[in-house]
Amino acid sequence: MEKQLLRFKVNGDEYEVYINPKTLLAEVIRDHLGFTGTKRGCETVSCGACTVNVNGFSVKSCSVLAIQCQDMDVTTVEGLEKNGKLSPIQRAFLDNGSYQCGFCTPGMLMSSTAFLEELKGEVPTEEKIRESIEGNVCRCTGYNSIVRAIDAVAQGKYKEE
């Protein structure tokens, strides 16, 4: 299959890559660009470890072709931190111990970030928070510490630094 040119932004920077149009977004992010923070944990779009944000929406990067992201804005876990300052949800994860092995953490953070942005300041119910990470499997934490972290950010306890 003839390679195509993909032009898109990742974590604020412009990238151009020639790719086989069958290539998944997860593969381009990890293998072509080297953003290995994004993980993969299944072949069935079930685990959410590969979640990234595309134009502000959380997307499982193993479920979309990279070429579909032409001219779009992709954020991976590496893009959450700005100038060495961690984002509110990253700090809340640290304070609440919302990670253990850490393999699901990048995906969890990306789902949480998109959810918190969609809220636009509204304080969600616990049920809503739980639904927001329903697509992300964590085998270590039992989720409750993650829910507490998202809740703390939604309650305004963490400000952008």
Binding site: F35, G37, Q90, G102
Partner: peptide, 9 residues
């Protein structure tokens, strides 16, 4: 190892 884990490092 928290910072490494929440930043993708």
């Amino acid at each position: 190892d928290g910072v490494a884990k929440v930043t993708g490092r």
